[in-house]
Each structure stands twice: as C-alpha cells, then as structure tokens.
Design a protein around this nucleic acid. Structure first.
Lengths: 148, 148
DNA sequence: ATCTATGCAAAGACTTTGCATATCC
DNA sequence: GGATATGCAAAGTCTTTGCATAGAT
C-alpha cells in the first residue's frame, strides 16, 4: 500500500477505495487531521470520542484499517504502547515524552548511519527509532521519574 | 543500577547483592551466558526450560529481576515483543529477523546523529533502535512475508 | 532458623473477534 | 437493496500478582 501524502485527503482516499464514510470514521479522522504530527493510542482516541457513544472496538478496527491502508502510521512507544499518527508523506521518527505521551517529529534517520558490513547479511525490511525523554512542558513542572 | 560488564560473573553479582542462587536462576543464566549476543523472549526461555519443571512465572520474575539489576537488557522487537539479552557492557543495537527472531548486534548508535536543534527542548532519557529484516539463513530458504 | 524464591493458580490488562442490527451508498 | 460498519459482548493472549510451601544461606 502506498502511504498517504501530505496533500491527500484521507476521507476521499477511503471512499475511492470502497470504504464507507461513517460517522465514527469521520470523527476519528477529524481528530487525527487537526493534530497532524501528534500520536495517539487507541485508548486516547476512544477517551475523546466516547461521549459520542462510539465503541472502543470501532476505534480499534478503524485504526487497524487506516494503518493497513497507509493512512496512519504506527509508532511503538517506550512501554509496549502502540500509537497512531496521520501519515505525513515523509519518513521521520519521534521524540516521545515518558510522562504525558506528547510527541515531536525528527527528520534524522539512523538508517543512513549503517555501513555495508554492519548488515551482516541481513535484508532490511524496516526499522524503529524512538527517543524517549521528557518534554519541555513536563520538565517545567519538574517531572521526575524512573523510566519504565 | 550499573550494568553488567563483559568480565563480570552474573551469578557472583547476584549473590553479592543478596539474591539466592537457585536452580531455576542458574539454568536461566546458563542459557543467557552460553548465548551472549542473542536475545530471547520469556517464552523462548520457558520453552527451553519447561522440561525441568520450571514455571513460566519463575522465568518471568527472574527476567524482570535481572533487568532491574542491570544484568540483562530489554529489547523490543517488531511486534510488541520483549526480548532479553545478557548485558555486554557496551551500548549497542540490534538487527532482528522477522522470521526466526535471530538477532545480531550493531555498534552504530543513532543518538550521535541528532543535532542540538532537533531536541526541541526534550530531555532525553533513553532510546530504541532496532532494524527489522531477514537474516541470511532465512533468506537462503527464500522466506518471504509481509512484515507485521 | 530465617528469609527469599518457586510453583500453582488466578486476576488483570489489553487485543482481537463473532454476530445481529444500523448505516451508508 | 445490498454490502459494509458498528455496537455489544465475549473470547484470546500475554502480563502480572497472591499465597502457601520449598529451598538457599
């Protein structure tokens, strides 16, 4: 699947691929679109939407669908958490706050560092790179804790 | 906690810190010591030891203990898996085979890449970097699959 | 003898799925 | 009207914990 680019409209893309634009789906995409560059867990999104009567399984299934369709990308946080973000069209990695979960994008990609002999015969498929830290806001409030 | 160095004996270290050297613990460390540079999930280790009558919870608790004590390090694989490896004393990252789970160490660390302005005010605590791919052995057996 | 570690079993947390009904095109 | 998506509920999977007993020093 080709990933969503910055200028594509996720809703149009879904329709063009034969999926229906339902209420829950629109609300979900709306949150993701108004928060480009931020990551959310399924639980985060459910919390924001549950007052509308949406079910967790609906959020879950839609995020999986959007990931399969290359509309959101999946980020693995520090403690086995899975977060989702609207695809931006350019490859990047993240800073993730251990305290509040806020994320920022970084453009440096470590794959450029790996030299030929370091491949040791492996055929690369993908990679993960995340920096865990404390965001400026949480630092201001003198957050201190041992990382999980 | 300071991490185990290459020349330290994990068993002696445990004793010196007041932990008992029990049968299960010795067997567990034995596998890890004879496989330096390889990562195992708790389940992997349990499979190898269950014929001895060991319980999964014992494996689990010991791995957590060893991690807390800086004797093993925790590696997060591609599909939310947690693997453990005896600490080598030097910081490194891994190539992980999607098919068989085999790992290799790489010494390049992406943190050196990140420039001042990319921190965006974050205070780094840690980072994850793993390359997912197909190991030479699995490639030989023409393994092909969509990554998870 | 004392205190820790283990086995066993059960509880938690989170992920994933089945199915009847509601919703979209 | 036909097919997909949702709500609801339950099943799965993996992680984590409680507690009585066995085991280490």
């Amino acid at each position: 699947v080709t990933a969503l680019t910055e200028n594509e409209n996720p809703e149009k893309l879904l329709k063009s691929r034969g999926y229906k634009l339902t209420g829950p789906r629109k609300m979900l995409l709306n949150i993701l679109e108004t928060n480009r560059g931020r990551c959310f867990t399924a639980q985060d999104l459910y919390e924001q939407l549950k007052e509308t009567g949406i079910e967790f399984s609906t959020v879950y299934r839609n995020l999986e669908l959007l990931a399969d369709e290359g509309i959101v990308s999946v980020i693995r946080g520090n403690k086995d958490t899975r977060s989702y973000e609207l695809c931006s069209g350019h490859h990047h990695h993240h800073l993730v706050c251990v305290n509040c979960g806020a994320t920022r994008c970084i453009d440096s990609c470590p794959m450029s560092l790996i030299t030929e002999h370091e491949w040791q015969g492996f055929t690369p498929i993908g990679h993960q790179f995340e920096i865990i830290g404390i965001c400026p806001d949480c630092a201001k409030n003198s957050y201190t804790e041992k990382p999980g």
